[in-house]
């Protein structure tokens, strides 16, 4: 069952088609990744899902019903570029954003303080935002995203600009939300994170959906006849070898596609026979990064 259904969304800015007939479903209780390079149309799609932009065409359905303005109250949103009122106090900021989501009163205040304690900010609740370090401001933003107990959490490039501590903190928050059965949607251009966190993904490029589905299914579909190799030594003998269909270099790993699934053992033997030191040999395994390159035929922006 899909919690959210995006159907045929389109959006143009002048002559630029930012989002072109995008459709996908977000299953209940999943971590859903919207994946693509910068400028692929991820943020525009998310903004349309949130009703920040009106789509030129297409609709978004929440459990079978067209979304309304009330949907906004059910969503916790963390935009890519995050800002807060500099002169506002930490606790006031949290309560203001919660109130805009329709939650106010003692209960929310108690919860806000609880979160601040959890994130080691309890002593700063009366500080102005501008007096906080950037890392601590990000923590306040995380709390503002989830304080009103949203059913859906939408994170746009959540890991950009985070230090390692906050990156881990956010990962914990995401996994914690998943345990509570919340639907988490995030967009990212970082394939590694998506691969580790998501159950389902939709990959978009130049405003169009390239592929969509559960990560497991996609991997088994694209992973057939595929070997992910980590090695040292000379492998030039594999060029034009009869069992090899093609070889792609992803930097840290090599993606090798054999002609027939039964030939993977033969490939391993060949490597050992040619004194190639094999560090990792993953048969029928493919990374999201490799899938991306496979479907786009282009190198992604690999940050790592």
């Amino acid at each position: 069952m899909n919690a959210l259904e995006v159907k045929n969304l389109c959006k143009s800015f002048g002559i630029v088609k930012a989002v072109d007939d995008v459709s996908f479903g977000v299953p209940e209780g999943s971590i859903f990744g919207l994946i693509g390079r910068n400028g692929a149309g991820k943020t525009t799609t998310i903004r349309m899902m949130m009703n920040i932009y009106l789509p030129d065409a297409g609709e978004v359905f929440l459990r079978g019903e067209k979304v309304t303005a009330a949907f906004k109250d059910k969503v916790g949103y963390l935009p890519e570029e995050r800002g807060l009122y500099k002169k506002m106090k930490v606790l006031d900021t949290l309560l203001y954003f919660a109130e805009l989501k329709g939650k106010s009163g003692k209960e929310v205040e108690r919860k806000a303080v609880e979160y601040l304690e959890k994130f080691e900010l309890a002593d700063r609740k009366l500080s102005k935002i501008e007096d906080l370090s950037k890392g601590n401001q990000q923590k306040v933003q995380f709390i503002a995203t989830i304080l009103h107990d949203p059913e859906f959490v939408i994170l746009d490039e959540p890991f950009s600009g985070l230090d390692p501590i906050n990156t881990n903190l956010l990962k914990e928050i995401i996994l914690d939300l998943k345990r509570q059965g919340r639907v988490i949607i995030f967009s990212t251009h970082l394939m590694d994170f998506a691969e580790r966190l998501c159950d389902h993904i939709t990959m978009i490029d130049q405003g169009k959906v390239l592929l969509s589905g559960s990560l497991k299914e996609l991997k088994s579909k694209y992973g057939q006849k595929h070997v992910s190799l980590n090695f040292s030594g000379d492998i030039s003998f594999l060029k034009n070898h009869p069992i090899i269909e093609n070889i792609e270099d992803f930097g840290s790993t090599l993606g090798i596609k054999v002609k027939d699934p039964s030939q993977t053992q033969q490939l391993l033997k060949l490597l050992v026979d040619h004194n190639v030191l094999v560090n990792k040999f993953d048969a029928n395994e493919i990374s999201l990064h490799e899938i991306f390159i496979h479907v786009t035929g282009k190198e992604s922006e690999n940050v790592f």
């Binding site: 906004k72 109250d73 969503v75 935009p79 807060l84």
Partner: peptide, 11 residues
């Protein structure tokens, strides 16, 4: 400051 995007996700 991009606060506006956060605001527009609520109102």
């Amino acid at each position: 400051n991009r606060i506006v995007e956060l605001l527009l996700s609520s109102i």
